[in-house]
Nucleic acid binder design. Structure first.
Length: 431
RNA sequence: UCCCCGGUAGCUCAGCAGGUAGAGCGGGUGGCUGUUAACCACUUGGUCGGCGGUUCGAGUCCGUCCCGGGGAGCCA
């Protein structure tokens, strides 16, 4: 007897199959009993009619509890009354493990309770749908870069020093050599790899010990970062736009069902096709001031400002050339306006905020040395990084994309904590 | 770190002006031959976050600490 995936039951109509899975739901109506079983690929209802299976198997139903594991055998039948359209006429019930009282019900639960039970919460249809979309997002990112000749280069997680600000570093003891820090970004290493391979990207976890309590922050999150030699800011904006529109198109093409489960409005996603609007920081400020916002030139946008800016467009908007004063040390100055950085942030629509940050990097050694001084960063641990400017320095650019923010936007989630299997937050390290 | 809101049954919550601790769901038992978060009946279930104070009497008022949620700053 073949073991069938529930998602493939249509291929087995009329056949006797085995399904290995977990009890999702139980109902009883006297001599007819129903159980909905899930196997990770989908849900199917099994029907037990007294007399049509061994008495012991029929009786086994009464001992089953929600989330008990079992093998269910029976004949597949198309059935309009069943959710999903197919049904199993059950001939055997073979329990494997009888679950204890399962804490999560289809009824309402609070956030704290669900987060404490994240390991079980993942089993719910909604969380499964999110994880499938996340899988697709990751796959699409890799395919996109691979197809464009970008080489995957894994950057280290344990690092001797900070990439960006020093305030948000997770510190750990590194054997007898003092302190090490969890990576906040693979960028600096990726720049080295770009000087070797030309076009490179990395995909991995990053860690920021920010005391941020918002719907957009995790202390551990996944980032895809790209870096390319000889790329300008304009090149990297085109790349970012291409990546995001490709990922959205792939999710739309392959995961309608999941988006439906999530009750995601598809119209805003279908609008996400190139070209994305590009506006400068200066234009953004002007627009904000026109709308009565009293933000002054030189300040960085807050969440409210990002929302206001992105609401003016029906697709992600790229805001470029921020004042250098509010950006990182490694960003190249705009030769036409040295107070501006050659950088770009991509703001997702619908109030989801920044999903990408990128820039052209400083290529000149003396300029970079001056920047380190300005930012009070120690030179010695970054000598290797300075070497990249000593040995065949070229203009180069890159960006980082936050996977959870992208997934949260695509799935229409209220908080990024649902966009990662086991979120790490300011006050949460369990489970 | 700061500002708001909250913590009562396994879960989601109600509990009025300080006066005997409640509901729905879940769990259990029984019933029902097509259920869809089934339904019906019965039933089980509490250190009211901790500590201290006011009071004849505190879930309720005050103080403090802990935990959680929402937001801010910073960022992806």
């Amino acid at each position: 007897m073949p073991v069938a995936d529930i998602a493939r039951l249509a291929d087995h109509v009329g056949q006797l199959v085995a399904i290995k899975g977990w009890v999702h739901h139980l109902r009883s109506s006297g001599k007819v009993r129903f159980m909905v079983v899930r196997d990770g690929t989908g849900l199917v209802q099994g029907v037990l009619v007294k007399g049509q299976l061994p008495e012991a198997d029929f009786a086994a139903f009464d001992r089953l509890t929600i989330e008990s594991s079992l093998t269910l055998k029976g004949k597949v039948r198309a059935e309009a009354r069943a959710p999903g359209g197919y049904e199993l006429e059950v001939t055997r019930v073979e329990p494997l493990n009888l679950a204890q009282d399962y804490p999560i019900s289809p009824k309402e639960h609070g956030v704290a309770f669900l987060m404490d039970h994240r390991h079980l919460w993942l089993r719910s249809p909604r969380q499964q749908a999110i994880l499938r979309v996340r899988d697709e997002v990751c796959r699409a990112c890799r395919d996109f870069f691979h197809d464009r000749g970008f080489i995957l280069v894994d950057t280290p997680i344990l690092t001797p020093t900070a990439c960006e600000g020093t305030t948000s570093l997770f510190e750990t003891d590194y054997l007898d050599r003092g302190k090490a820090y969890l990576s906040q970004s693979g960028q600096l290493y990726l720049e080295a790899a770009a000087m070797a391979l030309g076009r490179v990207y990395c995909f991995g976890p990053t860690f920021r010990a920010e005391k941020s309590k918002t719907r957009r922050h995790l202390t551990e999150f996944w980032m895809v970062e790209a870096e390319a030699a000889f790329y300008t800011l304009e090149d990297v904006m085109e790349l970012a736009e291409g990546l995001v529109s490709y990922v959205v198109s792939q999710v739309l093409a392959r995961h309608r069902r999941e988006l439906e489960t999530l009750e995601r409005d598809l119209a805003p996603l279908e609008a996400v096709v190139p070209p994305f609007p590009r506006i400068s920081y200066g234009e953004a400020i002007a627009r904000l001031q026109e709308m009565g916002n009293d933000m002054a030139w030189g300040e960085d946008f807050g969440g409210d400002e990002e929302t206001v800016i992105s609401q003016a467009f029906d697709r992600p908007v790229m805001v470029h050339r921020y004042p250098r004063s509010c950006k990182a040390f490694y960003m190249e100055a705009d030769p036409e306006a040295p107070e501006l950085a050659l950088c770009v942030d991509m703001l997702a629509p619908e109030g989801y905020g920044e999903i990408i940050g990128g820039s052209q990097r400083v290529a000149d050694l003396e300029t970079l040395l001056a920047r380190l001084e300005e930012h009070h960063l120690p030179r010695e641990p970054l000598e290797w990084y300075l070497d990249l400017r000593r040995f065949g320095s070229v203009p180069h650019s890159g960006f980082g994309l936050g996977i959870e923010r992208l997934v949260a936007w695509l799935c229409g989630l209220k908080h990024v904590r649902e966009a990662i299997p086991f979120p790490r937050l300011l006050d949460r390290l369990y489970p």
